[in-house]
Structures are given as C-alpha cells and as structure tokens.
Design a protein around this nucleic acid. Sequence first.
DNA 1: CATGGTCTTTACGATTTCCTTACATCCTTT
DNA 2: AAAGGATGTAAGGAAATCGTAAAGACCATG
Lengths: 234, 234
Amino acid sequence: MRERRLILVVDDEPQIQRFLGHALVAAGYDTCLAATGIEALAQVAAQEPDLMILDLGLPDMNGKEVIERLRLRSDLPVIVLSAHDQEMEKIMALDLGADDFVAKPFGIGELLARLRASLRPRRAARAEQIRQGGLVIDLAAHQVSRDGEPLRLTPKEFDLLAALAGNAGRVMTHHRLLQLVWGPAHVDDVPYLRVFIGQLRQKLERDPARPELILTEPGIGYRWAPAAEGGQPP
Amino acid sequence: MRERRLILVVDDEPQIQRFLGHALVAAGYDTCLAATGIEALAQVAAQEPDLMILDLGLPDMNGKEVIERLRLRSDLPVIVLSAHDQEMEKIMALDLGADDFVAKPFGIGELLARLRASLRPRRAARAEQIRQGGLVIDLAAHQVSRDGEPLRLTPKEFDLLAALAGNAGRVMTHHRLLQLVWGPAHVDDVPYLRVFIGQLRQKLERDPARPELILTEPGIGYRWAPAAEGGQPP
DNA sequence: CATGGTCTTTACGATTTCCTTACATCCTTT
DNA sequence: AAAGGATGTAAGGAAATCGTAAAGACCATG
C-alpha cells in the first residue's frame, strides 16, 4: 500500500491549484492535478488517488457529470468546492454521491478537517459480510440467508439491499438509491423503489407490514436499521 | 494567521468611531475605520477584516446596498447598528445576510457579546455534524438525534432546522427562512413559520415552553442559539 | 416456439405530511 | 389599564406520499 494518501485536485484556476497543492503537501499528503473533467477521470484511472477535491464549474463539463461518470466505476470519496451562487449544483453533487462540500471562500483548516473525515471511515465500512439478527448478507458472493437458510433475491433486489445495508444507519434518499441501483437515467422513478422495497420487505422482514430492517423516511428515502435496536413507538 | 482579530467600524459620526475604537482596542481587538459605504468596501478588500460593524444611515449609500455589494465577494460577518426609526433598513439588512443587529443606543457589553458570537468559527455549514448539548444534527445523513435516540422529523421540519442550525448565532428573518424552506413564492406566509417552529420546539427542546435552542426575535425572525452560552435574560 | 423468471408500469386504498384557520397568550404601546 | 400587534398552540381538511397487487414487456433458456 502507498505510504502517504494521494489527493487529486481538480480545478481550472492555476492560482487555486497552487494554493491547494502547497497546503496539502504541507499537511503530509501527495497530490496530483487535473484542470478539466476529462483529465480528472483519466487521473483517477491512472493514479488511483485516495480522494478527489472537485471544483464545480469546470470548462468542459459540470461537476454533476464528473461525479456521475466517476461513480460508474469507483467509490472514491469526493469533496466538492463550490462558489456561493451554486446552491443547486451543490445539492445535486451531494445527491450523486459526493461525500462533502466546502463553500468558497474557504479556510484551509476547514478543508483539511473535512478531508480527514472523508478519508477515515471509508475503509472500515467495506466489510464483505453484514450481519443483522439472523440475517447474513454476503456482498461478494451475492448471497443472503436468514437463520442459515439461503434466500432467493433477484439481481435488482440484491443491488438495492446492498445499497441500503452497505450504508447502515444512514438515510438514503430516493435519488441516491435510484442512482446507485438503476443508474443516472432513472433518478426520478420513485415508483420503482416502492415496488422493490416492498418485495425486499416481503422476503426479509419477519412481519412485512411492520418492518424492522428497512425503515421508511417519509418524503426523503429509506434507511437500513442500525444494528441493535429494540422497542417500538407507542 | 493574524494574531488579533481585526474589526472594521463603518460609521460617519466621529464621536461613535472614537468610542467604538477605544472600546474594541480595550477588549483586545484591532480596528480599522470607514466613514462611507465606498470606503467600507475598499477597506474590506485592502485589510481583509474579520468582522464589520455597520451603522445604517451612511451619507453615500444605505446599508442595504453596502451588504448587497459586500456579499458578492465575501461572507464577512456583519453586525448592524440601527436607530429606532430604521426598522425597515434593519430588516432588509438582515434579509440580505447580515449576521446580527444592535439597536442604538447600545451598551458596549452587549455589542461585545454579539461580536464574540459572530466571530466564533462559523461551522461553514451543512454536511458535517452539528452538536449542541445532547443534540446531534447530521445534515448530510438527514438525521437528528437527542441523547443517542433518533428523532423523527418531517422533510419540511428538517429543512427548517437546517436553515436555522446551519446559521447558528445569526438572526434569520422570516423572509429569509421562508425563502430558504418554502421558496420565493411564500416569503410572506409567516404563519407557516410559526406552526413549524412550534413543531420543531416540541421535538427538540427540553422544555418547549421555554426554548433554549430556537429563540424568537420578535418582529424580525428566529435565531439558533449559538454554541456555548450560559444564562438567559430575566 | 413455449416457458419461467425478472423487470417495468399502472392503479388504488392507506398513511403521513402539509396547509389553513381559529383562538388563547404574551408583550409593547397609548 | 386598555388596546393593538405579534406570537404560540390546537385541530381539521387538502394534498402528497407510501404500500400492495396485478398486468404486460422483456429476456434467457430449454
């Protein structure tokens, strides 16, 4: 494994590139640079960095597209830099799987803090097996079993389950789930989600009418219940 | 980084300039001065102060314009000084992004307190967790919990909370909150706010009748209580 | 070509959230 | 002390969202 973490800085302003480059090196990281979206994706493939700092508002494609195409092949953490007037872009970027964002103008201290936070937990969350009650989900082997007995899940069902259980405890928005399972073209087809969530509950939950594993966050999305949690609201 | 914080005082009355200058220096700040709006903007560019104290009623432009033009290039905290007959200006200034206000005549103690609150490192926004007492707000994960127990918030409730807590310490006017949560079409539907503020307090506050987190600024808006600050006015 | 499985799409009742209004309470002003 | 304005609560109906079932489309396989 590499000794120092490699940070890919994607920005078209040489001034900011230089500034970030110095600051990151001073903080003990290695850096590589890209000035366009195309370049950025090429650098990801070539250098396999540990994190990307992405400025929205590149000359060749918008940040949304960069993340979209990046997410097809990698789960590299992304921190988005955005100007004040880019609220919409920012929210889109987060929806598509950016990990965090920092508004310009930013303090270097703040950026480094976000960077440390994004680099940390990612490694731990990539376990191969997820256990929950009598449930065992083997992401690598594409298998799920309950109380030792294997369950039959269709590919889409499994992808959806993986997206949920792989982010246990976090609320996954409709957009994010649709993006992960159905791809960028169907981020608005919320009915798909309803149907497949229903099917998953039918197969996984002890009482599909009162789910304990896949919880609904009305108006937002769904959430995989965090590990040990007992008790129901009155 | 600079050792002492630099405060820019914008006022056309030499008497007040002198008074504030002495008081601020005595309190351990550096100061610089401006007597007009133009001068103020020039000083911001030249000196890069840490905070601006802005008297409404300048000779060359009104406070609204100063903040409007300032906000194009900076998110410098601004505290507004206003007389009784400048209510409209004051609210406009807050609408445009001023952080706080102090009514003339003011006590220096009060001004210094507001100043400390506005200088406190502003958690530049969303995406990271906000902690307050037993409360944890995870804006990215769309989750709120108190004393470890997750709270159920509806989407609108969450948006409103995000708008408030993401601007901790600032006075958020009715207009600004309505604009952020309900959109430009409902900036005058203050009753929405009352209802949802009430619901949030019901869920978040330890004693909803005597709120400690969401404070009312009568006639103006609401404010998320700044981090550590003990004691309430009688 | 038929078959079985999976995915997409639609429809409808149930649930949750949102909007709206009315009224009691508090604070400031005259 | 009374009046006016602003705020806080409660409650009902409107609107949006959710869960479920079911029918047709698509695809690989035999």
